[in-house]
């Protein structure tokens, strides 16, 4: 008799199944809500703490004030002017860095002689902190746009060349054998095997390069004496103690960084339609 009582007390298996089901269906939405909420929670907390004076409003102005400052910059047209300077530097530097990066990476990946020549140079230069070589660029190119372009380009070049090289070098030998067996010559091998085979890795390089380019842009605009651009505005606002405006331009950097990652991601997906995605 006691046995039946015990059995009656044991929770049925159905409950376990229900739990699993609930957890799964809820989790997707919860995850999305959480990832929207968590920055919001921080912003709201920041706003409150800054308003009631727990955070020093001089150093941590309330987010609403930062957005307000950004809005003012946009309204007066300043944001647009600064963005034109910065975006053109970023784009020129990006192209000047990424194109040679891809070319050198592919050639080094295909030719053992070129690889032997280029490899020690790249692995020797790569570990030097990029910010540390800015004075060198000033020495070479003086204060001006050139310096910024080349400095940004340098930052973009390294991740692109390294990833491109390893992408090309890691294309499985069998695909080169196939190309050879079907009579492909150098140019055809490049376009039909080396480049598409390396493309996912090249995209990774470009993604990292774009992020690096933004860092380089900020450094160069702060130290390069050009007197405009997002980086300059951050530095200038700091010196004039216009902290809201400083945060506003930091926000611009964050948004541009996110936008760059988005664009590279979209373009990347476009040029590698053969990769399985979920």
């Amino acid at each position: 008799m006691s046995a039946t009582v015990e059995i009656a007390k044991v929770p049925p298996v159905v409950r376990a199944a229900k739990q699993v089901k609930q957890r799964r269906s809820v989790s997707k939405r919860t995850l999305r809500v959480v990832s929207v909420m968590s920055p919001l929670v921080i912003l709201v907390t920041w706003e409150l703490l800054s308003r009631v004076g727990v955070l020093d409003a001089r150093f941590f102005p309330a987010p609403t004030l930062v957005f307000r400052a950004l809005w003012d910059e946009a309204r007066t047209g300043d944001l647009w002017t600064q963005s034109q300077h910065s975006l053109s530097r970023l784009m020129i530097g990006f192209v000047v860095g990424a194109v040679p990066g891809i070319v050198v990476g592919v050639v080094a990946g295909l030719s053992r002689v070129v690889n032997a020549a280029v490899r020690p140079i790249i692995s020797g230069l790569y570990p030097v902190p990029k910010s540390a070589i800015f004075p060198l660029f000033l020495l070479f190119f003086g204060f001006g746009e050139n310096t910024i372009w080349y400095f940004v380009a340098t930052g973009v070049f390294f991740p692109v060349v390294i990833n491109t090289y390893s992408g090309v070098a890691n294309v499985a030998q069998i695909f080169y054998d196939v190309a050879e067996n079907f009579g492909a010559r150098r140019g055809r091998v490049f376009w039909s095997v080396a480049l598409p085979g390396a493309m996912p890795s090249i995209i990774t390089g470009v993604e990292l390069g774009a992020g690096m380019g933004l860092i380089m842009l900020a450094i160069a605009e702060m130290l390069g004496g050009v007197g405009n651009g997002w980086g300059y505005m951050v530095w200038n606002s700091y010196q004039l103690f216009r902290i809201e405006s400083m945060y506003a331009y930091l926000l611009v950097f964050a948004l541009v960084g996110m936008l760059l990652a988005l664009i590279v991601g979209l373009v990347g997906r476009r040029v590698t339609p053969w990769i399985a995605r979920h």
């Binding site: 069998i174 196939v178 067996n181 009579g183 492909a184 055809r188 039909s192 095997v193 085979g197 053969w274």
Partner: peptide, 30 residues
């Protein structure tokens, strides 16, 4: 006409080409 064509041991079709492009590879190379 090409002298020979090989069906390789193991997976050897190009992942970055459609079935059509893969099958047409030798012809388009020529």
């Amino acid at each position: 006409r090409p002298e020979n064509s090989m069906v390789f041991q193991g997976d050897s079709i190009f992942p970055w080409m459609s079935v059509w492009q893969n099958a047409a590879y030798g012809l388009s190379v020529r």
